[in-house]
Design a binder for these strands. Sequence first.
RNA 1: GCUGAUGUAGCUCAGCGGUAGAGCAGCUCACUCGUAAUGAGCAGGUCGUCGGUUCGAAUCCGACCAUCAGCUCCA
Length: 633
Amino acid sequence: MPIILKDGSVYEVSSGTTWADVAAGLSRKLGKEAVAAKVDGELVDLLAPVRPEAKVEFLTFADEEGQTVYRHTSSHILAQAVKRLFPEAKLAIGPAIADGFYYDFDVDHPFTPEDLAAIEEEMKKIIKADYPLIRKEVSHEEAIALFQEMGEDYKVELIRDLPDDAQVSIYQQGEFVDLCLGPHLPSTGRVGVVKLLSVAGAYWRGSEQNKMLQRIYGTSFPKKKNLDEYLALLEEAKRRDHRKLGKELDLFGIAEEGPGFPFFYPKGMIIRTELENYWRAEHRKHGYLEIKSPVILSRELWERSGHWDHYKENMYFLKIDEQDYAVKPMNCPGAMIYYKTRTHSYREFPLRIAELGLVHRHERSGVLHGLMRVRCFTQDDAHIFMLPEQITDEIMGVMDLIDNFYNTFGFSYRVELSTKPEKAMGSDEIWETATNALIEALQIKGIPYQLNEGDGAFYGPKIDFHLKDSLGRSWQCGTIQLDFVNPENFDLTYISDDGTKKRPVMIHRVVFGSIERFLGILTEHYGGAFPLWLAPVQVKVITVASRHVDYAASVAQQLELEGIRVEIDDRNERVGYKIREGELEKVPYLLVLGDQEVESGMVRVRKRGAGDQGSASLAEFVANLKEEIEQKK
RNA sequence: GCUGAUGUAGCUCAGCGGUAGAGCAGCUCACUCGUAAUGAGCAGGUCGUCGGUUCGAAUCCGACCAUCAGCUCCA
């Protein structure tokens, strides 16, 4: 019978062969590396019999879907190992995730690191035994009976949620049987190396109402080399952890006295201020006006904005002279008040009102994480008021602005568009107009995006920007959100060209998202080695011996006059010692000044991470610095 | 908030029933030195907080606080 390969060619096979046979027939390498078949667009086990005239493509670990299959089988091996060592453990679910897999178990005994090691050993035995993974289809009824008999209550619950007439697929490997949609690797021996990484609590079905289970995380790769690379990446991430670097480089920190309320130390403040300066300069250039609204505002305002009803759990309240007040969790109501201080004409539009607004939100104690998740942070907010027909152009403008910012830091990014959710305010027409405006902007700019149907805010559709840092991790930062609710709630109007009062369209947008989080991301992205324009200390002047102190001081002073952030290290220490310290502090340039320099009136330049760069005149050095600062490289 | 782990000097960590230790950093002194750690000395802690067990608690138990890995929730 004929089947059609990926390249369109026709391949003859006899009936009764499996996809695995086909793969092996095509090439020895493919036979070994194929993890699943994609038949007419559907993922299928390699052990499944071939379907005539089907179009087939073989997936390997190199394909994202192939990786998922690979890790999914790995999670079954984990479950099998756990059942061998802890027969009383009940199985919940065990999917593949981005860099590995997990499996949830209900056991009273808390898994220890020693348990993990033992489980990992057992997994290796299962891989070595090379059990085939056999798929069976059983009726709904049979499946329930089977898993009930095994005491797998969670599996029974899962099956009960499937329609009564559904066929249920189960997979068997050795003595182990699991409910599973598949597909799977043909046998456990196809998994190369496995590594269990951690154990943590996780709620059954992700709901706090349910029992907490124990989740074991792990990963697997075809070769040990791949695993080692992955583990090295995890190590690198640990080295770059902004909490660690923040402490080491004396940038910021969080005191026990204020969980979730970060302190910025002098060096961190410099970076922060540079970011804000850059932000202000760019926004001024793009026609934004800046305001600052107060941190505390009355209850009445928050009731009108809807926050009192919908956001209460996340807000801090206080009483002033018997009146209720709240600390702002968002900046929009402040912007609304500003808008309403006078009447507006359509001629002013788009009216771009920016605010670096400090907001406070109550976050549950367990979610706090350095600067990434805090209880007070500064949003680089802006609210733009405009005519409906200005939406597309304005969105494009904001997208350009965001693109510009992210490029400056060397971030690539991807974009997601979220549309109308179930419970939403505003008419279908306005949603459609607004969503189309967003799509149009994305299309004109030629930016590919992922569509999240129904994921928009209740007040409007949005575009989110997820940037990718130097370690390939993704962070949600920028967002552009259309808002139909606030203009309504606050009865915003403008005088239209026909002299009548009309309702403006409004967008919220942030570029950094939160300055605190962005600084955390930058710290990890650069591994603490900030580019010159951001570096807290740009140049450190090092003396060779005490007789060079005067010259060093005059060099430092001249640099300071040029607006360079300079420190001088004239301690009676060895040059090597002071250089080591400067490198560890990640200062971009060190100037080593000794007899030669005093005589020639030059400076000896050492570049961070690159070593001695030779001599230069101070003027030349300064010109280079200024150029590098200007270019923000 | 939930599950598990952790909390000892400014930092990194050892000690785990008999009155607290190291390295680095700091300070003092000597060395005046050319591209990633000179040597010697000094000082520094109510061992997260509160309570309990014990003749005796950093060590065992409990509560609380904070941190970490996740879950849930989010910029």
